[in-house]
């Protein structure tokens, strides 16, 4: 266990989590500064997704501490964590994340509306983000009618529309070809840097991880911060 680096926005120490007999996390540490892009790498089944879920307050670890902005995540109630996710966090997943019945612009507006923003206003903000991610032409279409790359950009727009301080991306390009994947990564990291958001990027692809500032490796539920080793 290492001490929490000064000035970190989100930091976790000695996280442990088991699903039944399977140990997913076995003493993992993590920290990220505002505006930083950190890749979480490791073989599949190593616990990187679980680490992301714990950091985002989706899953409560069995033990360990997660400090976000000075607040202890593990001590918060479910609804407090939900509220935090709505206001401070954004999410991009590999697939299956857009609501198929809603149009793209409605999908992007959804997090704002969950926060209580009025429909008109939310959709206006959503449209700005769609433009920024170069997919405003599909705003009226449903997710089933757009390409994978477009859909993923819509998802990125949705993750960023609330102006999150931390963006969690779990294999965001997993379902895309390299060209589309790179474009999504470029847009994602550019957008995150411009808003000074931290990005926790879970990936097993080196070319995706190359968009990060540094990486940590998760193996057998334990993490290694490569920067501090070297």
């Amino acid at each position: 266990m290492s001490p929490v680096p000064a000035g970190s926005l989100l930091a976790a120490q000695d996280l442990r989590k088991a699903y039944g007999p399977t140990t997913a996390l076995d003493g993992a540490d993590f920290s990220i500064h505002p505006g930083e892009v950190v890749a979480v790498m490791g073989p599949s089944g190593s616990g990187k997704s679980t680490l992301l879920h714990c950091l985002a307050g989706i899953v409560t670890p069995d033990s360990g501490s997660i400090l976000y902005n000075g607040r202890e995540l593990t001590a918060m109630s479910d609804s407090e964590r939900s509220a935090l996710r709505r206001s401070d966090f954004g999410f991009v997943f590999q697939f299956g994340q857009l609501v198929p019945e809603l149009t793209c612009v409605e999908n992007v507006a959804l997090p704002l509306r969950l926060n209580g923003t009025r429909r008109k206003e939310a959709e206006r903000a959503a449209l700005t983000w769609l433009e920024r991610l170069e997919v405003d032409d599909v705003r009226k279409k449903r997710p089933g009618e757009v390409s994978g790359g477009q859909g993923q950009r819509v998802a990125v727009a949705r993750a960023l529309v609330t102006g999150p301080r931390v963006l969690f991306a779990d294999e965001p390009t997993g379902a895309l070809d390299s060209l589309n994947g790179e474009r999504v990564m470029e847009l994602l990291t550019d957008a995150a840097r411009s808003t000074n958001a931290a990005v926790v990027l879970v990936t097993h692809e080196a070319r995706v991880a190359a968009y990060s500032d540094r990486e940590i490796v998760v193996r057998d539920g334990r993490s290694r911060d490569m920067e501090r080793v070297v």
Binding site: A39, M41, A206, A209, A210, S212, E215, V217, R219, R224, M226, E227, V229, V230
Partner: peptide, 8 residues
């Protein structure tokens, strides 16, 4: 791991 970090 060290090597990967270097590669990255």
């Amino acid at each position: 791991d060290t090597q990967r970090s270097e590669h990255l």
